[in-house]
Amino acid sequence: MRYAICFTPPPGDPLTLAAAGWLGRNVYSGHAVDHPGLKGIGVHEIAFHTALPRRFGFHATFKAPFRLNEGANEAMLLRELMHFAGSLEPVTLSGLSVGRVGEVYGLILERPCSAIDHLAAAVVQAFDGYRAPLSEAEIERRNPERLSAPQFSNLNRWGHPYVMDEFRFHMTLTGPLLARDFPRIEQGLKAHFDPVLAEPVVVANLALFVETERGAPFTVHSLHPLGRVSSRKIA
């Protein structure tokens, strides 16, 4: 069993439903979802390009997948996550849009957001005590020889290269693509996602994701609202 602490919108959110259609799987139920009919992209091609992110589901990673340390259990993790989420306030993401990071497309921020960077770093730090040390095989899967010095340091200290100053908020929507396919896939993604990104996206919860066994699809175990209960009731 592995856990991850992420952001994903609530089950009925239009963005959640759009992402479930694009990826072909609902991250809450785990059920398959039909891909959309988009001009210039066949459903079989969408299925091919979304095979990698489909297993992980629609999310932005804060605390990358980890096994529980000795002495920790799921009940402890849930209790800590509930209290932690209640101590922080929601973050509004302005300018979330379809974009490319290297060979992969996803939803990215058009400009830096210090509040989301702070939230991600706080999650990494607060829950590192629950994380079992990486095995040699897990370290090798990260291709350490390709990492920069700060990324390698993060891998050894926090169990993941892309945290702290190396963190960039993103919600992955494709696997690696060929350059010749960039314009066509980007056009399809924007046609599908732009309507549900017209309004700012609010990070109003932390989601605990679970992988029941190595290689199994990740699903949402539970949502933990950000902000004090009294403040949420007033809002």
Rank of each mutant, 00 (worst) to 15 (best):
V33Y: 05
F48H: 14
R131I: 01
T212R: 06
T174A: 13
A121W: 10
A47G: 07
A72L: 11
R141D: 00
L107Y: 10
L15G: 12
P133F: 04
H83P: 02
A60F: 01
N154F: 01
V229T: 14
L173T: 12
R184V: 10
L23I: 03
G37C: 10
F62K: 09
R214Y: 01
G159C: 04
S230A: 06
A121G: 08
P161F: 00
T219G: 02
P90A: 14
G102I: 08
R142H: 03
S97F: 08
P225M: 04
L223C: 07
T61E: 00
F152N: 13
D165M: 03
G42V: 14
P225S: 03
L173R: 15
P112T: 06
G175F: 10
T61Y: 04
V196A: 05
F62H: 07
P133W: 04
R141G: 00
P10D: 02
P90T: 08
P36W: 07
G159K: 04
K190P: 15
P195H: 14
L96S: 06
V101I: 10
N69Q: 13
F56W: 10
G188I: 03
L78H: 02
E136P: 00
N205E: 03
P217D: 07
V196Q: 10
N205R: 15
L38A: 07
L78Q: 03
P195S: 12
L197W: 14
P11W: 00
G21W: 11
G95L: 05
H192T: 09
N143I: 05
L189R: 11
E186W: 04
H35C: 05
E45A: 09
A4Q: 01
S97P: 12
G37T: 10
T8V: 05
K233E: 15
A191T: 15
P53W: 13
E199C: 01
L155S: 04
Y162E: 06
D34S: 15
A19S: 06
R146P: 06
D13Q: 08
T219L: 05
H49C: 05
V202L: 09
P90F: 12
G86V: 03
N156S: 00
R168V: 02
E140N: 13
V202H: 06
F62M: 11
R146S: 09
L17I: 12
N143G: 05
F152Q: 12
N154E: 03
V202I: 09
G30A: 09
V229N: 13
A4K: 04
L173C: 13
A18L: 03
E103D: 15
R2D: 00
S231M: 06
H221F: 09
L96T: 08
T61H: 05
G215R: 12
N26L: 07
A198Q: 14
L107V: 08
P144Q: 02
F209C: 00
H35Q: 11
H35V: 06
E110T: 07
F167L: 11
E89P: 06
G24S: 10
R228T: 15
L155C: 02
L177T: 14
L178D: 15
N69Y: 12
A115L: 12
R157W: 00
T16V: 05
A51I: 07
V43G: 03
P176M: 09
T174P: 01
